[in-house]
Design a protein around this nucleic acid. Structure first.
Lengths: 345, 345
DNA sequence: CCCGAGCCTGACAACGTTGTCCAGGCTCTA
DNA sequence: TAGAGCCTGGACAACGTTGTCAGGCTCGGG
């Protein structure tokens, strides 16, 4: 009874299946499958009839069933910290582009820097049977991923290494970048240089701090505790931290801001100062060149990081890649003025 | 033979199923299902045995199979133009937050402003049987969505209305915002005001242009063709357009930049001018307050737009919502200096 | 005229889960 | 002590698709 099928197909909330299409076209179920998937072995005339039914019923293949049968979902998951952060936009975009080139869709979620939420998200993605995962870790223990890795879920960590498991990592040379940025300030005559960064439990923050210390040590400059502020990111506390190191008994003449959010706040604080204080920031920020002075930064290439990670992911899926590796991408110092100001005591 | 099950379960690329877990725990398949889903009717002792098997095998429920059986995927799709655009980051984030609150995951894709790609993406998402779609349309004909809507896929369009179908839309008051922004310039004494915007086939661009014209007409100012530049967005052409309207025979004393990308380029051009030219931009940009002068903008609330759209989506899914509606969110004029400069002839 | 080859086509099982339904064992009461 | 009712657990079908395999048809050659 084709009429019944038609009615059930157009009833709200019900979708036509291949069975419905087959019934309407008066062919077998498998023939419809062949047409839908462009498999050979169907007469043009039969194909036409099937296609007509498909269009008439508005049939759309159910990929859930397909996945169940085939095993691959053609989708990959991206877990990052916050989509609204300007660093992750381009990263996410470049991951998506690579995914698209491989015919895969991108599912993404934000961990909000919360390890539990990261795990919850990752496992939800695994339950959907994503073929691969790109993870910007919030937590530092990823042993919960072991069964997934064994099951063949391709995984690449980004921006920070995985904890307690052996997996691919793609990140910036945070240590080298920070060291270079601070050395740049030292080269312009600064000795009292402040550092404002995130909690050292975050890998990037720790590495950048290490770079700062290394650069100071290279120049034989002992670091005063009052020059360092760790674990502050919210604008209010960054502001206080900056003001303190500028007004203390041993005031800094330059500040190294260890990420883009910190940099932005520090710029605001410095704009209010009468004294000219030098600034180098980690991460580029938009319009940095239009400010007075332009903001000198150590820039990461977010798009390149995303692209590299995604490409490795698909090479894992190809089977081209077996041994986990750690890939460090170089950073680039962009001088625009704020980092070249001389010390003003 | 539990040993066989165990081996097959840990073989690379194969995952344990509920059957494997059941065999290992010595219970029935359905009992495992009950434990996994927290259904009642399982003795604590049995539950413990099952849980132990789950942990030992690293079992993870296969949501594809679940979806196939239940019909709902607990995921929604978001199709936007470009994730890297600062306007879409917060929007995407707020959509994700609402989705999360409803226990759904977010799948997103970028259309790159290409109608074919938009359709391809949307249909791919429908094939995955997402429960709902949030679409920032690139094309202007969405009749291809009719079968999906009939099938009960909740759909909300954002930023621009759908073409040729009746669906929910959430957008900013582009017309009113632009009109207000231009009126603000007029109120500060400007009469020769330039307009640089996107192709009028894009709804937002057309509306903002209409707002510009309306404000000019309200003030009885005839608009010269040379003051308007439509359909340019790439920096090079925006730059040329701006320079032309600043140097022509009838040079403008103020510019209304109809979106954030245009605004940024115009700022660069104006910074090179000796003459002080007023500027109002549509869309806020980061650090706008730190520039000299601060940039006056007509700001949209991207997060509110995303939240509103996603909430409507889930209300559609609840059944609370039936009739499609058009929701316009107000914009906000933020004065920072550039829009308050007097005309300099 | 018959037979084999080759091409279309369709019946059927399987993917892993959940909903339905029933069986068996237990407790409690008359 | 027997019957009723409850609680736990399991067998089975179904979701919509794809892979396997076999059957029927046509065509050409012997």
């Amino acid at each position: 009874m084709p009429e019944t099928n038609l009615r059930s197909a157009t009833r709200y909330g019900t979708r036509p299946t291949m069975k419905d299409v087959a019934a309407r076209a008066g062919v077998g179920l498998k023939t419809v499958s062949r047409v839908v998937n462009g498999e050979p072995g169907v007469t043009p005339e039969t194909e036409r009839r099937v296609q007509e039914s498909i269009d008439a019923l508005g049939f759309r293949r159910n990929d859930s069933a397909r996945v169940l049968r085939k095993g691959r979902t053609a989708s990959i998951g991206l877990v990052l910290e916050d989509l609204a952060d300007p660093f992750y936009g381009p990263l996410s975009r470049s991951v998506e582009e690579v995914a698209r080139a491989h015919g895969a869709l991108l599912i993404n979620g934000s961990s909000a820097e919360d390890p539990d939420r990261e795990q919850e998200l990752v496992l939800a993605l695994c339950a959907r049977r994503v073929d691969g995962l790109v993870v910007i870790p919030a937590g530092d223990d990823h042993r919960y991923l072991e069964p997934e890795l064994r099951a063949g879920v391709a995984t690449v960590f980004v921006d920070r290494p995985a904890g307690h498991i052996d997996a691919d990592v793609v990140l910036s040379d945070n240590f080298g970048g920070a060291r270079g940025g601070v050395a740049h300030l030292i080269a312009h005559g600064h000795r009292r240089i402040g550092f404002i960064g995130d909690m050292p439990r975050i890998h990037t923050a720790a590495e950048r701090l290490r770079g700062y210390r290394a650069a100071m040590e290279d120049a034989d400059i002992p670091v005063a505790d009052s020059w360092m502020s760790l674990g502050v990111t919210d604008p209010e506390r960054v502001r206080r931290a900056a003001e303190e190191m500028l007004s203390g008994p041993d005031p800094v003449t330059a500040i190294f801001a260890a990420n883009n959010r910190v940099t932005v706040t520090v710029i605001r604080v410095l704009a209010e100062q009468t004294r000219r204080v030098a600034l180098v920031g980690f991460d580029d920020i938009e319009l940095a060149d239009l400010l007075q002075p332009g903001v000198t930064v150590v820039a990461q290439d977010a798009a390149a990081i995303g692209r590299t990670a995604a490409e490795r992911l698909f090479r894992q899926l190809d089977g081209t890649l077996v041994t986990p590796e750690r890939i460090e991408l170089p950073t680039r110092l962009i001088t625009r003025g704020s980092g070249e100001l001389p010390p003003a005591d």
